[in-house]
Amino acid sequence: MVAIDDKLISTEVFDRKFVCDLNACKGACCVEGDGGAPLTMEEVDIMEEILDDVIPFMRPEGIEAVKKSGVFYIDPWNEPATTLVDGKECAFVYFDEKGITKCAVEQAYLAGKTSWKKPISCHLYPIRVKKLSDGIALNYEQWDICKPACSCGEQLNVPVYKFLKEPLIRAFGEEFYTDLEGIDETLKNAGLED
């Protein structure tokens, strides 16, 4: 682990390679798993506010789940998470003509209907943020369904943090990202990563 202010960052975000390969995985991270995408209460408010702009991009099953339960539920850790369809995929997914899972929230953003891209936990994946008593930890989450992304990242030699430049800056700012680049260089010079 390395530290930047109140953030502890796993060195795996520097030495692991990762580039999403949606043609291989079909966006399984939005469908598989044991819960919805983690949200903040501020994000819950945003999602409720933009829901009418997102609904045109959602599947009927997702719309029905949100009408029944709202945009979120409280998970076993007492945190908000995106509503699921029948306890499985995120209510905000849809499938494109190739069967690739896409995000209705992001599609509304890309269509110019909203100014908010998607929940930061989704945008930062495979980095997961965990609250600590005096800060946060940023950890790389390894998941078998992401093997194609790891292979693609290895071929292209793209570390996790570089793949996630946009969401890292969105979440923590330009200076934080510049600090990550400096740490990466220090680790390379010390021979602590490939």
Rank of each mutant, 00 (worst) to 15 (best):
C29K: 14
C30L: 13
E32N: 13
G33Y: 02
G33E: 03
D34G: 14
G35E: 04
G35H: 01
A37S: 12
P38C: 00
L39M: 07
L39G: 02
T40K: 06
T40A: 01
T40L: 03
M41D: 08
E43W: 11
E43R: 14
V44A: 10
V44H: 10
D45S: 15
D45I: 11
D45C: 10
I46Q: 12
M47P: 00
M47T: 03
E48L: 14
E49L: 12
E49Q: 13
E49D: 14
E49S: 15
I50L: 14
L51R: 09
L51T: 02
D52K: 06
D52A: 11
D52W: 11
I55L: 11
I55S: 00
I55C: 00
M58Q: 05
M58W: 05
R59I: 05
R59K: 11
R59S: 15
R59T: 14
P60H: 02
G62W: 03
G62P: 05
I63P: 07
V66R: 00
K67E: 13
K68E: 15
S69Q: 09
S69M: 08
V71C: 08
V71P: 03
F72A: 14
P76Y: 09
W77F: 10
W77S: 12
N78S: 06
N78I: 01
P80W: 07
A81L: 04
A81Y: 04
T83L: 08
L84N: 11
L84P: 12
L84G: 04
V85H: 02
V85M: 05
G87C: 05
C90E: 13
C90M: 10
C90K: 05
A91M: 04
A91V: 02
V93F: 01
V93I: 14
V93L: 07
F95W: 15
D96M: 03
E97C: 00
E97F: 07
G99V: 04
G99K: 09
G99A: 09
I100P: 04
T101W: 08
A104V: 10
E106W: 03
Y109H: 12
Y109F: 15
L110D: 11
L110S: 12
L110I: 09
T114V: 15
W116R: 06
W116A: 03
W116Q: 01
K117Y: 03
K118I: 07
K118N: 09
K118V: 07
P119H: 06
P119I: 10
P119W: 02
P119N: 06
I120Q: 15
I120F: 06
C122Q: 13
L124I: 01
Y125D: 06
P126W: 04
R128C: 01
K130T: 11
L132H: 00
D134H: 08
D134T: 12
D134R: 12
I136N: 00
I136Q: 10
N139Y: 03
Y140T: 05
Y140W: 10
Y140N: 09
E141D: 14
E141Y: 14
E141P: 07
E141T: 15
E141R: 13
Q142P: 10
I145R: 14
P148M: 09
P148A: 11
P148H: 06
A149G: 15
C150Q: 13
C150T: 11
C150E: 15
E154H: 07
E154F: 03
Q155F: 00
Q155G: 07
Q155T: 09
